[in-house]
Amino acid sequence: MTWKYQAAIIGGGPAGLQAALTLGRMHVETVVFDDGRYRNASSSVMGNVLGWAGAEPAALRAAAHEELVAYPWVRRVPERVETAREDGSGLVLVTPSAQWSAERLLLASGVDDALLPIPGVRELWGDTVLPCPYCHGHEFAPGPIAVISDGGHAEHVGGLLRGLSSSVPVVAPADVLSVSRSATGVRIDLRDGGAIEAACAFIPPNARVRSGIADDLGIRSAPEGIEIDALGRTSRAGVWAAGDVAKRVDSRIPAAVVTAMASGLTAAADIAASVALVRDGRS
């Protein structure tokens, strides 16, 4: 069976859901594919999200799902898009249950974090080992707040955190033996036999594009994400990208819920404009 839509969105996180809301409000026939994988799933709460401080990420998604019910032009499908191809009139997306035809596509499939291969990091990820000072730093002031990183990332993050704590020990990943939960929050055992006690530790997330759909369609990307312009357009006409999967114009811009939502809205607005051009015969 093949279902046909004006727009398809791959990804049910903040970027994809905001885009779905924007398109729904413009009465664009839209399908959203959500495979249930979310980058912030390991975080117990969200920070730096206006009106949602301290809320669980799942609460935001649930509220979005409820809100989208009011827009019958939007359909949510809890499946993973396995492959994509062009068919001459648009795109064909293949899921385990069906094929879906879409005139336009927004990639908001998110990323996976290639965490530092240090024992204990994965177990504490999203709890006391964290990626974003803007999202979680305030909650751990006055510290100490540790940084396990080096190079420009360590300099940038360490500088930000010194505005929150007078104690910001910075240690290179190669010097860390393991991390573990402690009475202060986190204990960082060093290879030289020493240890650092801190409220939390920030590390580079080393994000990697999760979905292979961009490769299927020959879309230009970089290690930092899919390359886009200011409106979220990719190198392939008719395909946009938003959220963490899209390459940021500057690495200092945080990959956060709010920035993901903003990019989803921007891309969706351009998609809706393209639908209007075709409808009015102006394309």
Results as ranks from 00 to 15, higher is better:
residue 2 T to D: 13
residue 2 T to P: 09
residue 3 W to S: 14
residue 5 Y to S: 04
residue 5 Y to Q: 04
residue 6 Q to V: 04
residue 10 I to C: 11
residue 11 G to R: 09
residue 11 G to A: 07
residue 12 G to P: 00
residue 17 L to A: 02
residue 20 A to F: 03
residue 20 A to I: 05
residue 25 R to N: 12
residue 26 M to Y: 05
residue 33 F to C: 03
residue 33 F to W: 03
residue 36 G to C: 09
residue 37 R to A: 14
residue 38 Y to E: 05
residue 39 R to A: 11
residue 40 N to F: 02
residue 44 S to P: 08
residue 50 L to E: 04
residue 52 W to M: 08
residue 53 A to I: 11
residue 55 A to N: 00
residue 58 A to M: 09
residue 62 A to P: 00
residue 66 E to H: 10
residue 69 V to P: 00
residue 71 Y to F: 09
residue 72 P to N: 12
residue 72 P to H: 14
residue 77 V to F: 00
residue 77 V to C: 13
residue 80 R to Q: 13
residue 81 V to E: 11
residue 85 R to L: 05
residue 87 D to K: 04
residue 89 S to K: 08
residue 90 G to P: 01
residue 90 G to N: 00
residue 94 V to D: 07
residue 96 P to F: 06
residue 98 A to S: 12
residue 99 Q to Y: 05
residue 100 W to C: 02
residue 100 W to P: 04
residue 101 S to P: 02
residue 101 S to R: 14
residue 103 E to Y: 10
residue 104 R to K: 15
residue 106 L to D: 10
residue 107 L to T: 09
residue 107 L to H: 03
residue 107 L to Q: 05
residue 107 L to F: 06
residue 108 A to M: 01
residue 111 V to W: 09
residue 116 L to D: 09
residue 118 I to L: 09
residue 120 G to T: 07
residue 121 V to G: 03
residue 123 E to C: 12
residue 134 Y to K: 01
residue 136 H to D: 15
residue 139 E to H: 09
residue 140 F to R: 09
residue 142 P to K: 14
residue 146 A to M: 13
residue 146 A to D: 04
residue 147 V to F: 05
residue 147 V to A: 00
residue 149 S to F: 08
residue 150 D to P: 06
residue 153 H to L: 12
residue 153 H to P: 05
residue 157 V to I: 15
residue 158 G to M: 10
residue 160 L to S: 11
residue 161 L to C: 01
residue 165 S to Y: 14
residue 169 P to R: 05
residue 174 A to D: 14
residue 174 A to P: 06
residue 175 D to T: 05
residue 184 T to S: 15
residue 184 T to A: 15
residue 188 I to C: 00
residue 189 D to C: 03
residue 192 D to C: 06
residue 193 G to K: 01
residue 193 G to I: 00
residue 195 A to M: 10
residue 196 I to Q: 02
residue 198 A to K: 08
residue 201 A to F: 04
residue 204 P to Y: 08
residue 205 P to W: 03
residue 206 N to L: 06
residue 208 R to P: 06
residue 211 S to P: 06
residue 213 I to Y: 05
residue 213 I to K: 06
residue 217 L to W: 08
residue 218 G to V: 03
residue 218 G to W: 03
residue 222 A to R: 15
residue 223 P to Y: 01
residue 227 E to N: 07
residue 228 I to R: 07
residue 230 A to H: 11
residue 230 A to I: 10
residue 230 A to P: 00
residue 231 L to S: 10
residue 231 L to T: 11
residue 234 T to R: 07
residue 235 S to F: 03
residue 235 S to Q: 06
residue 235 S to T: 12
residue 235 S to C: 14
residue 239 V to E: 08
residue 239 V to I: 11
residue 239 V to S: 00
residue 240 W to Q: 03
residue 242 A to P: 09
residue 242 A to E: 07
residue 243 G to T: 08
residue 243 G to M: 09
residue 245 V to L: 13
residue 248 R to C: 10
residue 255 A to Q: 15
residue 260 A to C: 06
residue 262 A to V: 10
residue 265 L to D: 08
residue 266 T to L: 12
residue 268 A to V: 04
residue 270 D to Y: 05
residue 270 D to C: 01
residue 271 I to Q: 02
residue 274 S to M: 02
residue 276 A to E: 12
residue 276 A to Y: 02
residue 276 A to W: 11
residue 280 D to K: 13
residue 282 R to Q: 12
